[in-house]
Design a protein around this nucleic acid. Sequence first.
DNA 1: AGGTCGACCTGGCAGC
DNA 2: TGCTGCCAGGTCGACC
Length: 272
Amino acid sequence: MPELPEVETIRRDLNRQILNYTIQDVRFFDTRVIRDISPQAFRKILLGRTIDQIHRRGKALIFQLNPKPVFFVVQLMMTGQLVLRKKMRREPATKVVFVLSNGRYLHYNDQRVFGRLQVVADLETMKYFRNLGPEPLSKGFTAQKLAEFVRTRRRAIKNVLLDHTTVAGIGNIYAAEILFAAGIDPRRPAAGLESREISRLYRAIKQILRQAVSLRGSSVNTYRDAAGQKGSFINYIKVYDRTGQACPRCHNPVSRIVQAGRSTFFCEGCQK
DNA sequence: AGGTCGACCTGGCAGC
DNA sequence: TGCTGCCAGGTCGACC
């Protein structure tokens, strides 16, 4: 999916364009993305409610609706997209379309149908939010907190970064880029990192995510922002999906390995 | 209890 | 051309 920078980009775009508008209709083309309740019940809850504010927590988008308390939560997972259009356009991946009172159509597209659309009165009822670690770009996320968490884990630091109880919103692309920026080998046991390495890691998390947000995310494959456009951080990616290509720092070929069943890209020359 | 693995899905691409 | 197998940005539950 979209990781934190991509989801944050969508949030900002939608916040500028659809606040205070009302959901007038919900049209289903594939109901598999509605999981816990019937599509009819889902539709009934949303109809007539106004979008007060759009938040993000980790990789989830949270639409705060009025009358309260109702939150419409979207998890895009691997291939979900939220695209705002002036006309309804049904594509193969189009699953649900929300008709808004400003005459716009918010399309939920999802090629692989992993995404989830939920309505809840209390976010804490969702397991995802109960277990989620701190927001990496918030003041509450400190080097101290990262250090406390990292020191108790024996598994590889790459897997600890991907674990959303450590820190929210980091996925496979940014885990690779963050570890490259920090010069840390993704295979290192987390508990073995020295203080200065954890400091470097902390700074890399902030720096890479901030830069990616400012560039509107990366588009490796299916990610699109709320206007259907690609993000430009793709042009600044150093190691992700670049197996065999020269490391921009030391010119060694980039390596690909598998950790916990997922690809890891890194430079053996300068990540120690 | 921490950690890993398969399941959930579809589509693109490499190799034969 | 067409088949097979592999791969993909995430999360959860089952299992060791």
